[in-house]
Simulated scan of single mutants.
Amino acid sequence: MFESVSKTTILAAGTGADLPTVKDFLPPEILFQGTPFAINRIILIRIVATVILLSVLALTASHAKLVPGRWQSMIEMGIGFIRDGVVYSVMGELRGKRYVSMIVALFFTILVFNLCGIIPGANMAATATVAMPLAFAAWTLVQYCWAGIREKGAWGFIRDECFTPGVPWPVYFLLAPIQLLELIIVRPASLTIRLFANMVSGHLTLATCLAFAQYWVFEASNKLTGVPVGAMWLVGGLIMTLFEIFVAFLQAYVFAILTTAYINLSYPEE
């Protein structure tokens, strides 16, 4: 049975199933074409998601009560989870208070942007192009450098980052550029690629399942085999939707905890 399904799947790919491609992540401009303010679909998704997120948080804050209701309790629980479970657990309360607002903002923004991939009408994660994850990673790098400079001074920060104590000085000619490359390229790239690649692969997998489901149910010439095969692909799409919700949360959490750990590394330890 599985062999026949795989054969028919390959047949579908060659006879008209509208499969997703990387071009889906570079949609044409829909507003202000030809200007520096041009907006395509994914930028519009980011704008709408940001407005909704800020509006929800502003309304929740404006109607906050001493005895919270269900919605306020849920928001406070989410903030408390990041504050206590991520920031304070990595940095400690004394040091972490400075960064709670930043890490909470990163987590909720990335989570909402990720969930756009399974929201009808959006159908694409706002983090599914490299620009947005790179912007978050750049923010992390700036905070890392600023924390180190504030605690150690500019030269102390550069010395600790590029010149590892206890290493023979001739080795610094090789080691210092590597350390500098890790600071300004490797760490931001690791944050960027992890988030970006997961969102892209998830979108492609989910869209492929739904494209095959649509093809076999509505376009296949043999309805006797097409409907059952399409139903199998639809079930796969539903499973992938649930998995994408899990991945959306997981990637937001991973980004938040890695950002916290990176910033914490910039502090001098006794």
Rank of each mutant, 00 (worst) to 15 (best):
I193A: 13
Q179Y: 02
G226C: 02
Y172N: 09
V235T: 07
T208R: 12
C209N: 11
A147T: 10
F173R: 01
T164W: 06
I158L: 15
G156V: 09
R150T: 00
C162L: 02
T164S: 01
R194E: 13
V235P: 04
A135K: 01
A248D: 08
F196G: 04
A147I: 00
P168R: 10
R159T: 00
W155M: 09
Q214P: 03
Y144V: 01
T205V: 15
A135Q: 05
E244S: 15
S221Q: 14
L206R: 13
L181W: 02
M232K: 04
V167I: 03
G237A: 13
P177Y: 06
A176F: 04
W155S: 03
A248K: 02
W216C: 00
Y215I: 15
V235K: 10
A220L: 09
L234R: 13
L175C: 00
P170Q: 00
P165Q: 05
I149A: 03
Q214H: 14
L191H: 00
F173T: 09
H203T: 15
Q143N: 06
C145P: 02
W216V: 03
F136E: 05
W155I: 02
L183H: 02
M240P: 04
R194G: 13
A213M: 01
L195Q: 13
F163R: 08
L174Y: 03
H203L: 13
P168G: 03
W139G: 07
L134Q: 09
C162F: 05
E182S: 05
P177L: 11
A131V: 12
N198M: 13
L204K: 07
A189G: 06
A154L: 10
S221L: 14
P188K: 04
A211Y: 15
G153K: 12
P133I: 09
V171Y: 03
I158W: 13
T140D: 01
A176P: 02
F212W: 13
I184L: 12
A207Q: 15
G226I: 04
R159P: 03
E151I: 07
L174F: 10
F212G: 09
K223D: 12
C209W: 11
T225S: 10
V186A: 03
A189Q: 07
T192E: 06
N198V: 15
G156R: 06
I178P: 08
V227Q: 01
Q214M: 06
F196R: 15
G226W: 11
P228S: 08
W146C: 05
F173I: 05
K152R: 15
G226E: 00
L134T: 09
L195P: 03
P133S: 11
L206G: 08
C209F: 14
T225N: 06
L195H: 08
P170N: 05
A252L: 01
F196K: 14
V171N: 03
E182M: 02
C209S: 15
G236L: 08
L181M: 12
L250R: 05
V200G: 04
L234K: 06
I184H: 10
A154C: 01
A135R: 04
F196N: 14
F157Y: 08
V142N: 00
G202S: 15
M240H: 12
T225I: 06
R150N: 11
V247N: 13
R150S: 14
T225R: 08
Y215K: 15
L242I: 00
K152F: 01
L224C: 08
W146L: 12
E244I: 11
M240W: 10
I185D: 10
V229P: 06
F249T: 08
T241I: 15
F212P: 03
